[in-house]
Computed example of a mutant assay.
Amino acid sequence: MACRISELVLDCHDPEVLARFWCEVLDFMVLDRDEGDIEIGPREGFGGPQPTIILSRDDEPKNGKLRLHIDVNATDRDQDAELERLLAAGAELVDIGQTGEEPWHVLADPEGNEFCLLKARLDPL
Rank of each mutant, 00 (worst) to 15 (best):
L10H: 04
G48H: 09
V9C: 15
V25N: 00
R121N: 06
R57A: 09
A19H: 03
D71V: 11
T99S: 15
K62G: 05
Q79L: 04
A88H: 03
S56W: 08
H69E: 15
V17F: 03
P42N: 05
L83T: 00
G36S: 08
P61A: 11
E44V: 13
V9R: 14
P51S: 09
R85M: 02
T75R: 04
N63G: 02
V17R: 11
D78C: 01
I96F: 05
L93T: 15
V30A: 10
R4P: 02
A120W: 08
K62Y: 11
L122P: 01
N63E: 13
F28E: 09
L86F: 00
E102H: 11
I70P: 01
N73I: 07
G100W: 06
F115I: 00
T52Q: 04
G48S: 10
E84K: 10
E111R: 10
S6F: 05
I54A: 06
T99Q: 14
I54N: 06
R77W: 06
F21D: 01
G41V: 06
H105E: 09
A108D: 05
N73V: 09
E101W: 08
G36K: 09
L68K: 11
E84C: 02
D109Y: 02
N63K: 12
L83F: 00
L118Q: 10
E35M: 10
E114G: 02
G64H: 13
G36P: 05
H13N: 07
L26H: 07
H69M: 08
